[in-house]
């Protein structure tokens, strides 16, 4: 067993786990933050995507022990002061989710993508969100939502 100390959404946590424990399982089981989902455990679907030290990464192909000392952000940390993040607002407005299972990973991916490309074309949005598989929406509502959120974020809140 090893000790893992990290910050998630600004809150410090400490836990003990086997070295083999996947980061996503640590977040969900040991920290009780179940917003981050598991869809494939081999890096393809993107449902488990979180922010690690400010950059998006798959938490199913990272070990919890590797996150010792890291700052993570999960979907639970996206809301600020009780208000939905512009991405969350836009997903709702544009029907960017149905079953909601891909949504946390999609939001984290879109957040990182828009930081690297604040004014994307639709083609670039599709490329950016192709990191996450969604089986429900056909992506159209998501593309619309990311485009709208980009505009909001560019304009300041």
């Amino acid at each position: 067993m090893m000790t893992v100390r990290l910050k998630v959404n600004g809150v410090a946590h400490e836990g003990r786990c086997e070295p083999r424990k996947l980061l996503v399982d640590f977040i969900r089981e040991d920290l009780g933050l179940t917003g981050t989902h598991v869809g494939c455990e081999h890096g393809i679907c993107g449902a488990c995507t979180i922010m690690v030290n400010g950059e998006s990464a798959r938490s199913c192909i990272m070990l919890a022990v590797q996150a010792d000392g890291a700052e993570l952000m999960t979907v639970e940390g996206l809301m600020q002061d009780g208000k939905l993040h512009p991405l969350q607002e836009a997903f709702r407005e544009h029907h960017g989710l149905q079953c909601g299972f891909c949504t946390p990973g999609m939001l984290m991916t879109a957040l990182d993508f828009l930081r690297t490309n604040p004014s994307p074309s639709d083609g670039e949005i599709r490329e950016g969100i192709s990191a996450v598989l969604c089986r429900c929406t056909g992506y159209q509502g998501i593309v619309n939502a990311v485009r709208a959120a980009a505009a909001t974020l560019r304009g300041g809140r």
Binding site: E29, T34, R92, F101
Partner: peptide
């Protein structure tokens, strides 16, 4: 009408089977 299930699903507060322990 914007969906009523969205706020919980967008904030990681859904209640899928695996969320129960």
């Amino acid at each position: 009408v914007a969906r009523r299930e969205d706020p919980r699903l967008l904030t990681g507060q859904g209640s899928y089977v695996d969320d129960h322990r």
